[in-house]
Amino acid sequence: MFNPSVFSRLSHDVMNNSCSRPLISLTVRFISKSSSDPSQSFVVAYLKDKLGFSPESAMAADKYLLFKTPEKPDSVLEFLQKHGFSKTQIEKIIKVRPGLLYSNAEKTLLPKLQFFQSRGVSSPELIKILFYNPKVLTRSLEKKIIPCFNQLSNLLQSDYNAVKAIKRYPFLTSCPLDVYMLPNISFLRDNGVPESNIISMFICHPRSFVVNPDTFKEIVKEVKEMGFDPLLPKFLFAVVVFRKISKPAIERKFEVYKKWGWSEKEIWEAFRLYPGVVESSEEKIAGIMDFLVNEMGFESLLLANQPFVLARSLEKRIVPRGLFAQDLLSKGLIKSFGLSALFNTSEKVFVERFVNRYEDKAAELLSLYKEKMNLAVGGKYRSSYS
């Protein structure tokens, strides 16, 4: 059913994605210098004393840095501190992009921060974005950053959506979108995927769209051949799952389900109902199955028919709600319960349906529910299955 070469190439893309690799050699374009005793250079001493570099890291960066006085690098460090970056964040940013120490902070760095803030990025959000992708600070504002952001904003139909996507995958601000992203989106359109579905899924999973177009096309074709309807959101969900998870990882998760009595056919049927059945870790899958089957008494194959439950948090939803429902059952307040009613409702709906509804018969129910929450998060279920 599946072409192993798709996943082989996919793994290669993930490991070699140029958008995600902060390479000093590609960033710093300064002439290397020689020194009879590099361990004694001003740069080495500065990086060690000011930024806590190890001797090895300082000497490696020293090959690319030429400053002999502290004024320029001091101004950069003070600028970053002034704008909310912690000492640890600054140290890691400079290790990845040592060339920043040559920057004119007010002329080249400040306008970039101001641009993102003008588009709706808060200061804490901006710090996180730049920490994970400091390459942005070395790019041209006019030639690279603004065109890239505008392109993303036009695609997602608002600055707000563009910011949401960048927050989830900061490397969007430095990726060649024309190469890695736009061809993939165009291919989805050609296959009948609605624009609204593309936008929604891209905002939630932007990294899944940044991949070699040939690999992406093969994944889309595989999903289509499985019978997924391109008009439904589930189609793109399946594409994202296969983009994120390698074939060997999927096979390992299949083995976990098989240990609980699911056949290969039943696993694929569950996948068609809810592609997220292969998103959770093997440990989480085993933990959910164990609790629901052995603790709650559900039939294993019932979960194959309602696989959505495998996406829920074991600690925050499944265990506390399950234990609470068992208490209601033992008190005679309810006669039965189903997976959907227990685990596929919001917290507000669950409390209204299972807690407040019986308040007049058992006033202590809310406290009991909170007790189950604490047990799940801090007790044996956390240590066993988290």
Rank of each mutant, 00 (worst) to 15 (best):
L130I: 14
Y132I: 13
Y132N: 15
P134S: 14
K135R: 14
K135V: 15
V136S: 04
T138F: 11
T138N: 11
L141T: 13
E142G: 12
K143N: 08
I145C: 07
I146M: 01
I146C: 00
I146D: 00
P147T: 03
P147H: 05
Q151V: 02
S153V: 04
S153H: 04
L156R: 01
Q157N: 08
D159N: 08
Y160T: 14
Y160A: 14
Y160W: 12
N161P: 00
N161E: 02
A162K: 03
V163W: 01
K164L: 14
K164T: 09
K164Y: 08
A165N: 08
A165Y: 06
I166F: 02
R168V: 14
Y169G: 10
Y169C: 15
P170K: 01
P170I: 02
P170M: 02
P170N: 03
F171H: 13
C175M: 13
P176E: 15
L177D: 00
D178G: 11
V179F: 13
V179A: 11
Y180L: 11
M181H: 05
L182F: 14
N184Y: 08
N184I: 08
I185K: 03
I185Y: 04
S186P: 09
S186E: 15
S186K: 15
S186D: 15
S186M: 12
R189I: 15
R189S: 13
D190P: 02
G192F: 06
E195D: 15
S196Q: 13
S196P: 05
S196V: 13
N197H: 09
N197E: 09
I199A: 06
S200E: 08
M201R: 07
F202C: 03
I203W: 02
C204G: 04
P206Q: 03
P206A: 06
V211E: 14
N212G: 05
E218I: 12
I219V: 14
V220S: 00
E222Y: 09
V223M: 00
V223N: 00
K224Q: 13
M226G: 07
G227K: 10
G227L: 10
G227P: 07
G227W: 10
F228E: 01
D229H: 10
P230K: 05
P230Q: 07
L231V: 13
L232V: 09
P233G: 03
K234E: 06
K234Q: 07
V239G: 00
F242H: 07
R243L: 06
K244R: 14
K244T: 11
K244E: 14
I245V: 11
I245Q: 03
S246D: 10
K247I: 00
K247Y: 01
K247A: 02
P248D: 05
P248K: 06
A249W: 04
I250V: 12
I250Q: 02
I250D: 01
R252D: 10
K253A: 03
K253F: 02
Y257Q: 06
Y257T: 07
K258N: 13
K258G: 11
W262C: 11
K265H: 11
K265F: 10
K265R: 12
I267C: 12
W268N: 06
W268K: 05
